[in-house]
């Protein structure tokens, strides 16, 4: 019996092949399939829905121009991660730390049995928004997409040890930031 993941992957590769052949419907399917991942990544990093949508649109337009170069769905996802990550870093540098923009409240994917501490979540987002651009993208890839350091290193084209170092330092900064809030 063929595993479900393999069937899904073959189906996704077929869509990619159709999009590469110029099929607009197939390209729209690709965009819809991946838009949440990359819009959300941009939103968490840039903290502005408008900026995140602009960036996501630009990334998908660039994806269209590079479709001929992508051999599989895995390759496509890796390409999208790399381009979105680098564009987020560039945009942050361009904006020169305009990161204190309030996040719009949007319904989130999935629900958990544990009651949510919205104050804590907001505080963590603020603390991550104060990190340098590269560290911020590393943190979002780690905690939104739950990527391993090696996968983040691959996406951002940096050494694994640099990724680990970013994660270690960022977590230390977050712990210290949370302790400050807890103090009177």
């Amino acid at each position: 019996m063929i595993p479900a993941a393999q069937v899904l992957s073959a189906d996704h590769d077929d869509t990619l092949a159709l999009a590469r052949g110029g099929d607009a419907t197939a390209f729209a399917v690709l965009v819809r399939r991946h838009q949440a991942m990359f819009f959300s990544l941009a939103l968490h990093v840039l903290r502005s829905r408008a900026a995140a949508e602009d960036l996501a649109q630009d990334v998908f337009l660039e994806l269209y121009r590079n479709l001929w170069n992508l051999e599989s769905t895995a390759h496509l996802v890796s390409w999208l991660r790399r381009v979105t990550g680098h564009r987020c870093i560039d945009e942050l540098r361009r904006l020169r730390h305009r990161w204190e923009l309030p996040m719009d409240e949007v319904p989130e994917r999935g629900a958990s049995a544990r009651p949510r501490d919205l104050f804590l979540e907001g505080r963590l987002q603020q603390l991550v928004a104060r990190l340098p651009p590269r560290a911020r993208v590393v943190m979002v890839l780690r905690y939104q997409e739950e990527l391993e350091p090696s996968e983040i290193a691959d996406a951002l084209q940096m050494p694994v040890n640099t990724v680990k170092s970013h994660l270690r330092r960022s977590l230390a900064v977050l712990r210290a930031g949370l302790l400050k809030v807890g103090q009177p």
């Binding site: 949508e53 999935g110 987002q125 905690y143």
Partner: peptide, 21 residues
């Protein structure tokens, strides 16, 4: 755990694919 919750994936705005096309 708290970071995972703070950075859960957000849905894309409706019509994004249409605007890209």
């Amino acid at each position: 755990h708290d970071l995972r919750r703070a950075f859960t994936r957000k849905p894309a705005p409706p019509g994004l694919a249409g605007r890209v096309l």
